[in-house]
Design a protein around this nucleic acid. Structure first.
Length: 473
RNA sequence: GUCGCUAUCGUCUAGCCCGGUCUAGGACGCUGCCCUCUCAAGGCGGAAACACGGGUUCAAGUCCCGUUAGCGAUACCA
């Protein structure tokens, strides 16, 4: 049974990079019939904020990344928040000490920093020399007397670690070139990330760890630790990182790529998911638009590529537009309305907006473009170019149009064609001279959706009012 | 600095494992035309890439080595 997890730390909002890691885990679990776990890594209490925790949960749900086990719905291996698992980490720390696999180290942070600085100056690996391993009892007492609180370090005995990475293939590390003995319990007694992940992954029976490439060089530490605790390490797969449009790391631009921001701008979650899935993965053929369900079927870890990619808002917009166009008018209208209501963006009453919304399905890439299109519903109308309404020909045209309205069958979706057909014989103008005054009178603008589509949605009363106002202009 | 990862159009990518079918395919964006009352949407075209240098081979985008560049790690953050 495959078990994967997504383990964000509630020290910020979820962004594109995080969510892609979550998505790939989710997709892998679904494609394989496995279990998807959400785990909150909140051991860093200094940067933790409750609203980040809530934000993560909300964002995950909005995206449709529903977890089988995790906060709020629990599961057999809970709790799923590390702050509630502290005694577990302590237990395994004690076990490692008892077995001589970890030791209390009285070396101060200043000393290790200095050692690394000097190593760097000498073009040597920036590793710590493990001097705390061999302190004499007097030395330890002396340091205790100075008020130095020890950290717990894991003894690296076999620094050579081979990894078969699910996306990168074979990678080999020598921890002697990297770190030396590493801290697993801070001086204040709290576990570091390394201890916490290893204990949790082991205890939660995680089979595949799919995470960001920034963890690739932590992996040898984790493998050693997990083995030292007597568990079998999971398989690892490291996903390349996503960068911003300028090639910069994503975290620096957090606000613009946070899930909350995409939601605020009116993207469809399934479109966002579709786009993100294609950052570093492709199905191998030329298809690009996938529904949630299809994605869950076709996704495979083997087709994830190794190189990092850049987030492109233009393409996201296109994908979103494609998904929008796939929606039925009814569903589109409901989703658009929900969005406008939630964002407090309704220009007029919801019932009026609901009627005209279908006319804009092809016009937008995302919902936040709607208010600009819908502004014309507000009365009185301000005309973008009133000149279209002020010629004598236009006056005649509008008068005739107004008179025609009651005779039309407004239940006919093609009522606009009938309207124009009836209007044409009564006026001398044609083409642009005919359509523009109608368009401007109705919407105030020279550009907009097809009148053929919009006109029937407007209704007789609305059209009449608009023609009257235009005449009085 | 040290260790590691990566390298196909501006961007996302197919092709690379199993060299010839690649005068390198698709998509976004850009651009021309068509449709059209407008703006979109849609349709049909166009420009646009194998980072560089060696090697292996009859043959290299595909295999090997090096260089360069980018990224990651180098924390008592995760």
């Amino acid at each position: 049974m495959i078990r994967v997890r997504f383990a964000p730390s509630p020290t910020g909002r979820l962004h594109l990079g995080n969510i892609r890691t979550a998505l790939f885990n989710y997709l892998f679990a679904r494609a394989q019939g496995g279990t998807f776990i959400l785990r909150l890594e909140d051991t860093d209490r200094e940067r933790f904020l409750p609203e980040y925790r809530e934000g993560i949960i909300q964002d995950m749900r909005w995206m449709g990344l529903n977890w089988d086990e995790g906060p709020e719905n629990n599961g057999p291996y809970g709790p799923y928040e590390q702050s509630e698992r502290l005694e577990l980490y302590q237990k395994y720390a004690n076990q490692l000490i008892a077995e001589g696999k970890a030791y209390y180290c009285y070396v101060t942070q200043e000393e290790t920093d200095e050692a690394k600085r000097i190593a760097r100056l000498n073009r040597m690996p920036p590793r710590f020399d493990n001097r705390g391993r061999n302190f004499t009892q007097e030395e330890i007492e002396a340091r205790k007397a100075r008020g130095i609180k020890p950290t717990l370090r894991f003894k690296v005995e076999n620094p050579q670690v081979k990894i078969h990475d699910l996306v990168r293939g074979d990678v080999e590390f020598n921890l002697d070139d990297m770190s030396g003995d590493f801290v697993i319990l801070r001086a204040d007694g709290t576990p570091t990330f390394h201890l916490a992940v290893c204990v949790d992954d082991a205890l939660m029976k995680v089979t595949h760890v799919i995470r960001g490439e920034d963890h690739l060089s932590n992996t040898p530490k984790h493998i050693l630790l997990i083995k030292a605790m007597g568990f079998e390490p999971p398989q690892y797969g490291h996903l390349s990182l996503i960068h911003g449009p300028g090639g910069e790391p994503l975290s620096k631009r957090l606000s613009t790529v946070s899930v909350g921001e995409f939601r605020r701008q009116g993207y469809l979650p399934e479109a966002l998911v579709n786009y993100i899935a294609f950052l570093g993965w492709s199905p191998g053929d030329n298809r690009e638009i996938f529904s949630w369900e299809e994605l869950q079927k076709v996704f495979s870890l083997e087709r994830v590529n190794k190189s990092s990619s850049i987030y492109d808002p233009d393409k996201l917009n296109w994908v979103n537009g494609q998904h929008l166009r796939l929606l039925s008018d009814e569903v589109f209208t409901q989703k658009a309305l929900d969005y406008l209501q939630m964002q407090n963006l309704l220009p007029v009453g919801a019932d009026v907006v609901r009627r005209v919304l279908p006319a804009f399905k092809d016009a937008i890439a995302k919902f936040d473009e709607l208010p600009a299109h819908l502004g014309f519903l507000k009365s009185p109308l301000t005309y973008e170019n009133a000149a279209w309404l002020q010629t004598p020909a236009a006056k005649t045209l509008l008068t005739e149009a107004l008179a025609l309205l009651p005779s039309l069958n407004w239940n006919d979706p093609l009522v606009y064609d009938a309207f124009i057909a009836a209007l044409k014989p009564k006026v001398t103008v044609k083409g642009k001279e005919l359509f523009m005054p109608v368009r401007v009178a109705l919407t105030g603008k020279e550009h907009g959706p097809e009148l053929k589509k919009l006109f029937p949605l407007l209704g007789q009363q609305f059209a009449a009012e608009r023609f009257k106002s235009a005449l009085g202009n």
